[in-house]
């Protein structure tokens, strides 16, 4: 009985030598990636309505908008901070402005300075927005003051 089992396992072991390997020969053979894999986040500037809802929804803070003094906003995205949860896509009110592709993100390189550089950029973006808002407020106040003086002049005339 024992002899039979030993022989059986022995033949099984020999046969296993000629079996195909279970693993995938990776660089020559593609691994399984589904069509709707959660990959890179894309952005379409022409469709965006600049409501910044994606920035508010993003859990790790991988999206930030900076603002120039003329009011034009710029979109910044960090693929190494992003967790690819597609929460920004769900939050977007305009379809197609921000979308998810099925391309896996490339790894971050040291040259890109992806952590410190991003932290500095994030701070600067918030500051640029605050500066724009302050400028806007100042202009509005100036305008209101001008209107007020004009009204007073009119009143004085009448």
């Amino acid at each position: 009985m024992i002899k039979y089992f030993t022989m059986k396992t022995f033949f099984k072991a020999i046969l296993n030598l000629f079996k195909k390997p279970v693993t995938i020969k990776y660089p020559f053979e593609q691994t399984f990636i589904p069509d709707d894999y959660r990959g890179m986040i894309g952005f379409n500037e022409n469709l965006c309505i600049w409501c910044r809802r994606c920035e508010m929804a993003c859990p790790p803070g991988a999206i930030v908008f900076s603002q120039a003094m003329d009011g034009k906003q710029t979109y910044h995205f960090n693929r190494a901070v992003c967790i690819y949860c597609s929460e920004c896509v769900r939050a977007c009110p305009k379809e197609g402005a921000i979308f998810q592709t099925n391309v896996p993100a490339k790894c971050a390189l040291k040259e890109e300075n992806i952590n410190n550089g991003w932290n500095i950029l994030y701070g600067e973006a918030l500051m640029s927005r605050a500066a724009y808002a302050a400028e806007k407020k100042r202009l509005a106040a100036e305008k209101a003051a001008a209107i007020k003086t004009e009204m007073e002049k009119k009143e004085a005339k009448s």
């Binding site: 399984f32 589904p34 894999y37 959660r38 690819y84 597609s86």
Partner: peptide
Amino acid sequence: EAVCGNRIQYDFSIVGGVAR
């Protein structure tokens, strides 16, 4: 991976329902 789009971090349930 086919259902959730990722092998490890599924991020499937969100508050109020499911993501996909």
